[in-house]
């Protein structure tokens, strides 16, 4: 497959998996926690590297998932000790991220990770980093990682769709009918962590936040059905990745940055023109009403 095709496929897969997981984050008001986790997985990856001395994707996934969950646990602990949630998130992620950055700079010589890469990703090099598994032809490592995470996420969402739905909508009721609300919460946090780390090589830690939140936010303004929201969000994720790539090659700039920007542009369009919840559609009837009253 051509170089370009690989980038488009990998970007789209990141778009789908982030878009779907992101919807639940938005509905559960956990966007900032996702932002926090996307920063702190850096620490997980550095630790995984320092302990295993390899850039093996599996170790990185495990390290990232562990630190991601740790972030969620720390935030929960601080929050339940009486600190407001936004501040708990702020303290935890800046601290863990700072430790990650310090470790990278101290071990800079033997870590093949540099901070810029971690933040912005290097999707442009991803198609060259191939691995061979069994009888399959050599495939890009990022593709294999994203494919496995996408499958894991989709399976979890399909299996626990109604549990995710009810714990997001009405956690008290969910607890009352015996759904393990906390377990579902950490399951989602685990999904965010592995999603982040799988997208990490390609789009970087911070821009993955744009891919997680923006498509879902756009979809949220377009529909009143959860299933449709998930679908739309995935579609927006793909569009942003594809258009973002072409925009980046046209203006010769960071691919992941352009994908994030494109997500922002899609949101802006929806924000303005959504038929039911957009700014303009809200304005127009008001204007008409004013005109009628004026007459």
């Amino acid at each position: 497959m051509s170089y370009e095709a690989w980038i488009l496929i990998i970007g789209s897969m990141a778009g789908i998996t982030c878009g779907v997981v992101g919807c639940f984050l938005i509905l559960r008001k956990l966007s900032m926690l996702a932002d926090a986790i996307s920063h702190t997985v850096l620490l997980g990856i550095v630790l995984a590297f320092l302990i295993s001395q390899s850039m093996n994707g599996l170790y990185m996934l495990i390290g990232a998932a562990a630190v991601g969950l740790l972030t969620a646990v720390f935030v929960q602990l601080l929050h339940s000790s009486g600190i407001q949630e936004d501040a708990s998130i702020g303290v935890v992620f800046t601290f863990l991220f700072a430790i990650g950055v310090i470790l990278i700079t101290i071990f800079a010589d033997n870590v093949h990770l540099d901070v810029d890469h971690a933040l912005m990703g290097e999707i442009a090099f991803v198609p060259f980093d191939l691995v061979q598994i069994g009888f399959l032809p050599p495939l890009p490592k990022a593709f294999l990682m994203l494919a496995s995470v996408l499958i894991i996420n989709l399976v979890i969402i399909v299996l626990f769709y109604k549990e995710f739905k009810i714990t997001s909508f009405d956690p008290q009721m969910a607890a009352a009918i015996g759904i393990p609300v906390l377990l579902i919460h950490y399951l989602l946090m685990g999904m965010v962590s592995i999603t982040t780390v799988a997208s990490f090589d390609s789009v970087g830690a911070i821009l993955v936040v744009a891919m997680l939140i923006a498509p879902g936010a756009s979809a949220y303004l377009l529909t009143n059905k959860l299933s449709v929201m998930l679908l739309l969000s995935a579609v927006f994720g793909v569009i942003a990745a594809v258009v973002g790539y072409y925009a980046a090659s046209y203006i010769d700039a960071s691919i992941s940055g352009c994908m994030a920007m494109m997500n922002g542009i899609i949101f802006l369009l929806v924000f303005l023109f959504s038929p039911s919840k957009g700014i303009l559609s809200k304005r127009l009837p008001q204007k008409k009403l004013h005109e009628q009253i004026g007459k």
Partner: peptide, 13 residues
């Protein structure tokens, strides 16, 4: 539960 406990903007009918 008391009505305050849910998110009324949730995409659901």
């Amino acid at each position: 539960p008391q009505r305050g406990s849910v998110d009324w903007d949730f995409p659901t009918s």
